[in-house]
Simulated assay, not measured.
Amino acid sequence: MKILLPDHKRWVHDSLMDVRWGDMDSLGHVNNTVYFRYMESARVEWLRSTRDTPHGAGQGPVVVNCFCNYLRQIEYPARLVVKMYVSDAARTAFETWYQIEKQDAPGEVYASGGATVLWVDFARQKAVDLPAWMRGMVEG
């Protein structure tokens, strides 16, 4: 089973990561909460590559909604490829999308998910317009 991403999404980043022994739960597969960490790690890696280092000063991204569809179990050991896509740049937010595959099984999706990212002025704790450079990254 493959969850399709929106047609208008744009690929922006692949992140490679290893499943750690501690990522598993008592049933011997990756715990459901850890998939969100994989997506977060890919998102932060991408943001750092765009020139934005997420921090608590000034303005930056905040996740306001996220989801994950679990399609296949992942067990230790495994090397993952987290494919990240973006879409739907709005005034203050954009969408991120993820597909998690095993590096040794390309094209076989183990999980897919997404997150709505809101651009926030941290001091004011208020949404602000996406910076032009970020809008350009999302729109291509």
Rank of each mutant, 00 (worst) to 15 (best):
D7H: 12
K9M: 07
R10A: 06
W11H: 15
V12P: 15
V12G: 13
D14F: 12
S15V: 03
M17G: 11
D18R: 15
G22L: 07
D23L: 09
D23Q: 12
S26H: 12
S26Q: 14
G28T: 00
V30H: 09
N32C: 02
V34M: 08
Y35V: 01
F36M: 07
M39N: 02
M39S: 04
E40G: 04
E40L: 05
L47I: 03
S49R: 05
D52G: 05
T53H: 12
P54E: 07
A57W: 10
V64Y: 07
V64T: 14
V64A: 10
N65S: 10
L71S: 03
R72M: 13
I74S: 14
Y76T: 01
P77C: 05
L80V: 02
V82L: 13
K83Q: 14
V86C: 09
S87T: 04
D88V: 01
A89M: 12
A89V: 04
A90W: 10
A90Y: 12
R91K: 13
A93M: 08
T96Q: 15
Y98S: 09
K102Q: 15
A105K: 15
P106L: 02
V109H: 05
V109Y: 10
A111E: 11
A111C: 12
A115W: 08
A115C: 09
W119D: 01
W119F: 02
V120W: 05
D121Q: 04
F122S: 13
V128C: 14
D129S: 11
L130A: 07
P131F: 12
W133M: 02
R135P: 00
M137K: 15
V138C: 11
E139H: 10
